[in-house]
């Protein structure tokens, strides 16, 4: 039932977010229309942080309880986190080229976000190489915790080191902030993309549960 409601609500929210980003929000004075990338680029980044923090919580709970449901939560969240981090990085590059005139620069925020994505790609690769579920879960949990520790560092990067990436527009210092209509558009997109994360996570966890059941049945048949 929840999946059905989310399945209807999420596409509607995404369409609303697109309307707010392209029609409702005013055009930014300096960068022009390309600034509209912001309305999906920032929420994709925030959602990747949420996903990786969920990995950290799932990893911690798995190390404490050895309950496979926590390992499943962490693994599925890491996969979706990598998806959103990839969206965030790629959209950022497509925004950087017309504004900074380069696709990429080794700025603190950009480097840490790339590092975060690479840590969780290695987390997923580790899962493919270790066969024993308990050993795999424990090893992945350690990597997951290390990766989650990078999230606050990444969040603070644009506050601690003033380099190429713009200053924070939310929770920044004096002079930061957005046009009220831009705030609305950003808020709608953030809600839509967080809903998308929850929906994808629930669907992915259902697929993973079926996969575990299949593995169990295959082992039973092999032992007969």
């Amino acid at each position: 039932m929840t999946d059905r409601i989310l399945g209807i609500l999420t596409p509607l929210a995404l369409v609303a977010a697109l309307w707010f980003a392209f029609i409702y929000a005013p055009t930014e004075a300096t960068m022009g229309t390309v600034q509209r990338i912001f309305y999906f680029h920032v929420p994709a980044g925030i959602t990747s942080y949420v996903a990786f923090i969920v990995v950290g919580i799932g990893s911690l709970m798995f190390l404490y309880s050895h309950d496979p449901k926590w390992d499943r939560l962490a693994y599925c969240s890491a996969e979706i986190g990598v998806l959103f981090a990839s969206m965030n990085i790629t959209m950022g590059m497509l925004w950087a080229k017309p504004v900074w005139l380069v696709w990429w620069t080794w700025d603190a925020r950009l480097t840490l976000q790339l590092l975060l994505a690479l840590i969780f790609i290695s987390y997923l690769m580790l899962g493919a190489y270790v066969a024993d579920p308990l050993k795999r879960g424990s090893l992945q949990a350690v990597v997951g915790l290390l990766g989650a520790a990078d999230v606050p560092l990444n969040y603070m990067a644009i506050r601690w080191w003033r380099t190429q990436h713009p200053e924070p527009v939310i929770g920044g210092g004096e002079g930061s902030g957005l046009d009220p209509d831009m705030y609305v558009a950003l808020g709608v997109a953030a809600v839509a993309i967080l809903l998308l994360y929850v929906y994808l996570l629930r669907r992915r966890m259902a697929v993973e549960a079926s996969s575990e059941k299949l593995r169990y049945l295959e082992q039973m048949v092999a032992s007969r």
Binding site: L18, V34, I37, F40, T90, M91, L94, W95, P98
Partner: peptide, 8 residues
């Protein structure tokens, strides 16, 4: 660039 970003 805007269209490319949303397409990605």
């Amino acid at each position: 660039f805007l269209v490319a970003a949303y397409s990605v």
